[in-house]
Amino acid sequence: MIEMPVEVSANSGAGAERAKERVRKGQAPIVPARGVAGNALVLVIAIMTFLSCLTLGAVTMVRDTAAAWQTQIAREATIQIKPDEGLDMEAALAESASIAGGFPGVTGTRIIDRNATARLLEPWLGAGLNMDELPVPRLVILTVDRASPPDFAALRSALTEKVPGLILDDHRTWVDRLVSMSRTTVTIGLTVLALILLATVLTVVFATRGAMAGNGHIIEVLHFVGAEARFIAKEFRRNFLVTGMKGAVAGGFAAVLVFLGFSLWSSRNLATPQADQAMALFGNFSIGVLGYAGVVFIVALIGAITAATSHATVVAHLHGLEVRQPDG
Score class of each variant (00 low, 15 high):
Trp124Gly: 15
Thr160Leu: 03
Lys234Gln: 13
Glu133Lys: 03
Thr203Ser: 11
Asn11Tyr: 00
Ile47Asn: 08
Gly38Met: 14
Leu321Ala: 06
Leu87Gln: 01
Met131Cys: 04
Thr272Tyr: 03
Val242Met: 15
Glu7Ser: 12
Gly86Gln: 08
Gly216Gln: 10
Pro32Arg: 00
Leu197Ala: 03
Gly288His: 01
Ala312Val: 05
Ala37Trp: 07
Ile196Asp: 00
Leu41Cys: 13
Arg119Met: 08
Met4Glu: 06
Val62Cys: 05
Phe253Asp: 04
Pro164Trp: 00
Ala213Ser: 10
Leu197Phe: 11
Thr78His: 07
Asp169Pro: 01
Arg119Tyr: 11
Val23Met: 14
Ala33Pro: 07
Phe262Leu: 12
His311Val: 10
Trp69Phe: 08
Phe262Ser: 15
Pro137Gly: 09
Asn269Pro: 12
Glu228Tyr: 03
Gly105Ala: 14
Ala307Tyr: 00
Met61Ser: 13
Ala28Tyr: 09
Val258Lys: 15
Val62Asn: 14
Ser98Trp: 05
Ala68Leu: 07
Pro150Ala: 07
Thr173Ile: 05
Pro32Lys: 04
Arg22Val: 04
Ala14Arg: 06
Gly226Lys: 00
Glu95Ser: 10
Leu321Ser: 02
Thr55Ala: 06
Gly128Arg: 13
Val62Pro: 12
Gly102His: 02
Ile196Trp: 02
Ser182Ile: 04
Gly128Met: 14
Val315Tyr: 08
Gly165Pro: 02
Leu318His: 01
Ala300Cys: 13
Val144Lys: 01
Leu198Ala: 07
Thr185Asp: 14
Ile218Ala: 05
Leu281Thr: 14
Arg268Val: 13
Gly128Gln: 10
Glu95Ala: 14
Phe297Tyr: 03
Leu129Asp: 09
Gly226His: 00
Leu134Met: 05
Gly303Thr: 01
Thr313Leu: 04
Thr187Leu: 15
Asp170Ile: 11
Ile112Ser: 10
Lys20Ser: 15
Ser286Val: 11
Ser286Glu: 05
Leu178Ala: 08
Arg18Ala: 14
Leu159Pro: 01
Val289Pro: 09
Asn130Gln: 07
Ala77Gln: 10
Trp265Asn: 09
Thr49Leu: 08
Phe152Lys: 06
Asp88Thr: 08
Ile232Asn: 05
Phe253Glu: 03
Leu195Arg: 09
Leu87Arg: 10
Ile45Ala: 09
Gly247Glu: 00
Leu56Pro: 10
Arg18Cys: 07
Thr71Phe: 11
Ala127Ser: 14
Val8Tyr: 10
Ile47Phe: 09
Gly261Arg: 05
Leu129Asn: 05
Thr173Gly: 07
Asp113His: 04
Ala316Asn: 07
Pro32Gln: 07
Arg24Asn: 07
Leu166His: 08
Leu51Arg: 04
Ala94Trp: 04
Gly251Val: 00
Trp265Tyr: 04
Met181Asp: 15
Arg146Gly: 11
Ala40Gly: 11
Arg114Gly: 07
Ser148Ile: 15
Leu125Phe: 06
Trp174Gly: 12
Val36Tyr: 12
Glu235Lys: 07
Arg238Tyr: 13
Glu21Ala: 03
Val201Gly: 15
Pro273Asn: 12
Glu122Cys: 14
Met279Cys: 11
Ala278Glu: 08
Asp132Arg: 10
Arg177Glu: 01
Ile305Lys: 02
Leu202Met: 09
Gly303Phe: 00
Gly283Asn: 02
